[in-house]
Computed example of a mutant assay.
Amino acid sequence: MEVKELLNDVVASGSSDLHIKAGQPPIYRINGKIQRSTFPVLTKEDTKRLVYELMSEQQKSWFRDRLELDFTYELPGVARFRTNAFCQRGHIGAALRVIPIKIRSIDEWGLPEILKDIAEYHRGLVLVTGPTGSGKSTTIAAMVEYLNSLYRRHIITLEDPIEFVYEDNLCTIEQRGLGEDTDSFAEALRHVTRQNPDVVVVGEMRDLQTMQMAIRASEMGALVLTTLHTTDAAQTVDRILDTFPADQHQQIRLELSTALQAIISQALLRKLDGSGRTAAFEILICTPGVRNVIREGKAYQIYSLIQTGQKYGMQMLDQALKQMYMSGVVSYRDALSKCSDPEDFERSVSGG
């Protein structure tokens, strides 16, 4: 089995992920479910060969030193693969996420129209949140491509590793990967405002320094798009605050209440008809009322502000899930599993 043969089959099967593990055949994730492929069981020699075929000589050297590595592999004309190579029980393994060559638009994905308005903001912080594999990178890519098709802006992305590859249309887009083009998100953000960006995309706000620098960049006149692994808007605000020492909370609440423009939280669910997966969204727009509750440390009030903020394009995740279930798009069980408040969802669906 050659690696190109395997990767072509992964894409042809409609898989979102590939897992390479000694003692098992290649394992696919299709519509959110793990499935073993029809390829032969892999030996430890097979897994080492397959994973090393994905790497450059420099990447092999890094991997031998660190025993794990994030990188991207491209099969020209087919797809890109975000890859994490690692060792388990002394054997080399890998997890690969399929990244389409073509970046689909907001309309093609059927994403909420309000995302176009959010992408058009000229400054501030926009957070796209959700668990791993919920489509955060895809949502940001669609927003960047929307700008690229309509506006002349300078966009800089900071990624680990580079996922979607953009082609300049109206925008000028520069993509920087950790390890190859910069040492860290925080270090890149420290210098990014001197590079005259209109939009900065940060792969993930994974630590305190990155959060500080992302907020600062948004305050200095750029629109910053980034991600967090949180499930809804209120939890996102609390997560950011909890990252900082307690004696800084008041200052961070003040900065966040000024810089934050929107939080887009999403969850990915299997379609009931088995045709694939679809996303449910929670949208928070930072109105004066939202900024006030963030500043006062009352993030729990965000839920009620979203419920009453439909005229601004806001929606609760649980409202979106209910609508998808009532329309027959997803199952009751799957919708319930993604809810912020399962008990309230059950009462709402039952009419109680």
Rank of each mutant, 00 (worst) to 15 (best):
G93Q: 07
A94F: 08
A95T: 14
R97K: 06
R97D: 10
V98W: 04
I99C: 14
I101F: 07
K102W: 05
K102L: 08
S105W: 14
S105A: 07
S105R: 15
D107Q: 10
W109V: 05
W109F: 14
W109I: 11
L111W: 10
P112T: 07
E113I: 00
E113T: 00
I114R: 02
L115V: 03
L115N: 08
K116L: 09
K116N: 03
K116H: 03
D117E: 13
I118M: 03
E120C: 10
Y121S: 14
Y121D: 12
V126R: 13
V128C: 12
G130S: 11
P131Y: 02
T132V: 04
G133T: 09
G135W: 07
K136L: 13
S137D: 12
S137G: 02
T138E: 02
T139I: 15
A142E: 04
A142N: 07
V144P: 06
V144G: 05
V144E: 13
V144N: 13
L147V: 04
N148F: 00
Y151V: 04
Y151K: 09
Y151Q: 06
R152M: 14
R153V: 07
R153Y: 00
I155E: 05
I155V: 06
I155H: 01
E159Y: 00
D160A: 02
D160E: 02
P161V: 12
I162G: 09
I162Y: 03
V165G: 11
V165R: 10
Y166T: 05
D168K: 12
N169V: 11
N169F: 06
N169L: 06
L170V: 09
